[in-house]
């Protein structure tokens, strides 16, 4: 690791005092499961690391006045699994269970999970997020790269396991900075972006902006689910994933949210899949039709055609699971 300064904040205001206005100079440290490995490989080389794990307000899981839930960015994933409020959001619980490693769940935090860097092997081997303006993935081994939204230089996949569920559930991020008095609530669906130029991150936050809490709306009738397609039982990342949230009335879908993960540089909100379901009952046939609609937008690279089918299956299974028609997966 490159030498750096270690800074610890005990209040939210203290964090802002420690963050640099220059990109890449400071990194926030929560569980460290992603950041420390990246720093050892010199992929991320901050001058200062700011530990946010000692800030009491970031460790809360609290119901909101509207019946939703506020989760501090530094709450660990295993604490979420044991929380009664969180249980009312099955899609989130299933996504966290899917992470499938006692250590990652105990050490990793929800804020860190949402903000973790892509697993793209070009990025992780020092070629940058865009990996030579997208050519390394386009012409090289792209088996784990994007099958949606990959026309620009960004070919990596968004790696957050919980983001599809959180977006389907309508989560917002509480963001502080860049100035001391700045506070905003950003829909998680607007947090991620596919970078177009070298140096841009995979999210929209400016330097000195940071995530303090994840805010969920009321859980509603809990017709939501996450389904991940993985190639083993081990701790490997999924090849495709989907989260679905359904509003059901009179046996038919009134509204649907379908968000795919691990298939695009951002979590991929599939409006076409949601549209297919509206007005129809959930059956294996309609769920499959939603999956089929989702992949109508797929633009696979030469090495990842197989992921298109997996994305379709992920949508189908997530929809069935959300409607309570299937109990497979976790």
């Amino acid at each position: 690791m490159k030498a750096f300064e270690y800074a610890e904040a005990r209040t939210e205001a203290g964090v802002l005092e420690l963050l640099s206005a220059e990109p890449g100079k400071t990194e926030l440290l929560a569980g460290g499961t992603d950041l420390i490995g990246l720093m050892k490989k010199m992929i991320v080389t901050p001058d200062r690391v700011v530990n946010i794990m000692e800030i009491p307000s970031l460790k809360v899981i609290e119901p909101t006045a509207e019946g939703g839930l506020v989760i501090g960015a530094a709450v660990t994933l295993d604490d979420l699994l044991e929380n009664d409020y969180v249980r009312e959001y099955p899609a989130l619980v299933q996504a966290i269970r899917g992470i499938n490693s006692m250590q990652l769940q105990a050490q990793g935090t929800l804020g860190g999970e949402v903000c973790q860097r892509p697993r793209c092997w070009f990025f992780r081997n020092g070629h940058g997020l865009l990996a030579e303006n997208g050519t390394l993935a386009a012409e090289g081994d792209s088996r784990y790269h994007a099958v949606f939204g990959n026309q620009g230089p960004a070919k990596f996949v968004s790696s957050s396991r919980t983001a599809p569920a959180l977006i389907a559930l309508g989560a917002h991020l509480r963001v502080l900075g860049p100035a001391a008095e700045d506070e905003s609530f950003l829909p998680l669906s607007e947090f991620y972006r596919a970078p177009r130029q070298a140096g841009q991150r995979e999210h929209v936050l400016e330097p000195r902006q940071w995530v303090t809490h994840i805010v969920l709306p009321p859980p509603g009738d809990q017709h939501n689910a996450t389904y991940e397609v993985r190639d083993s039982e081990g701790p490997a990342f999924p090849l495709a994933a989907a989260a679905a949230r359904l509003e059901l009335a009179g046996g038919v879908v009134r509204q649907a949210q379908i968000v795919l993960g691990q298939v695009a540089p951002t979590p991929w909100v599939s409006q076409v899949a949601a549209d297919v379901l509206r007005g129809l009952p959930v059956t294996p046939a309609t769920a499959e039709a939603a999956g089929q609609a989702a992949i109508s937008e797929a633009t696979p690279l030469p090495g990842n055609q197989y992921k298109v089918q997996l994305a379709k299956v992920a949508v189908k299974r997530a929809v069935l699971l959300a409607a309570g028609l299937e109990t497979g997966g976790f």
Partner: peptide
Amino acid sequence: SMDGSSGASTVWVAGKTVMASTTL
């Protein structure tokens, strides 16, 4: 592993199982 993916450095810190290799 450098990045904690093996679990071989698992220890308890404050009662939680963490990877000592990715803990400062």
